[in-house]
């Protein structure tokens, strides 16, 4: 595919548990086109999060290849500009307010100026937190925290967003609102989305649905 933004080929990942070798991923192949939205479902322990970490370049596969826009460079520096990640547990920095949490994604990449501040504020407005920018994570609800995490993932205008069960810690209603927001923002900005979820309804909202079973896509 010429406009492939992410390509994983023959990904194998095994873990050692005592003397046992557990083969979590057994040759996963995935090609994601720019602008696409993909959901990955699977039972607990099926390797969804492991796959996502591998796709994000946070872990190395035992076998197989991974490329981002055709390049095998999946290092930290490139990751910061290329993709945004949304985690199940939000992972906001408790000492920073909502605005500074969003800006942290940019700080790591480079300089913070008025343009960056304006963008972070704009993103927080887009996720409905215009009035909560100076609130610390402890002063926000679970849904609000996840919306800050979504804004942070979009801060560097990434080509790809990887979301690892972003609704896992939220109630049904709040979770659906976060998914709608994420999909809407990705559509608006043309950002590619790979969503790992348990929830069939949320998965159905994506353009392509994949199911991970016994270490491979079914």
């Amino acid at each position: 595919m010429s406009n492939s933004i992410l390509n994983a080929s023959g990904i194998v990942k095994t873990f050692l548990s005592g003397d046992r070798r557990i083969e979590v991923l057994r040759g996963v192949n995935l090609d994601v086109a720019a602008g696409e939205s993909i959901s990955i479902r699977g039972e607990s322990g099926s390797g969804k999060s492991t796959l996502l970490h591998l796709l994000a370049g946070l872990d190395a596969p035992d076998a197989g290849t991974l490329t981002w826009e055709g390049s095998p460079d999946t290092g930290a520096k490139r990751r910061a500009a290329f993709l945004g990640i949304v985690f199940q547990s939000f992972y906001l920095i408790p000492e920073l307010d909502a605005l500074q949490n969003v800006l942290m994604a940019r700080r790591i990449v480079g300089h913070i100026g008025s343009a960056e501040r304006d963008r972070a504020k704009e993103l927080l407005k887009r996720v409905g937190l215009a009035e909560r920018m100076d609130h610390l994570p402890t002063q926000l609800s679970g849904g609000e925290r996840q919306r800050v995490a979504v804004a942070r993932a979009l801060m560097n205008a990434p080509r790809l967003i990887l979301a690892d069960e972003p609704t896992g810690n939220l109630d049904e209603h709040t979770g659906s609102a976060v998914i709608e927001l994420l999909l809407g923002l990705c559509r608006e900005t043309g950002t590619t989305l790979v969503l790992v979820t348990h929830n069939a309804d949320h998965a159905a909202k994506c353009g392509r649905q994949l199911v991970l079973r016994e270490g491979r896509f079914a």
Partner: peptide, 16 residues
């Protein structure tokens, strides 16, 4: 620990 993981995920180097 998890925040350190997050910083790594956001692109922070080990040195940083």
């Amino acid at each position: 620990t998890r925040e350190i993981g997050l910083l790594g995920a956001l692109g922070a180097s080990r040195r940083q």
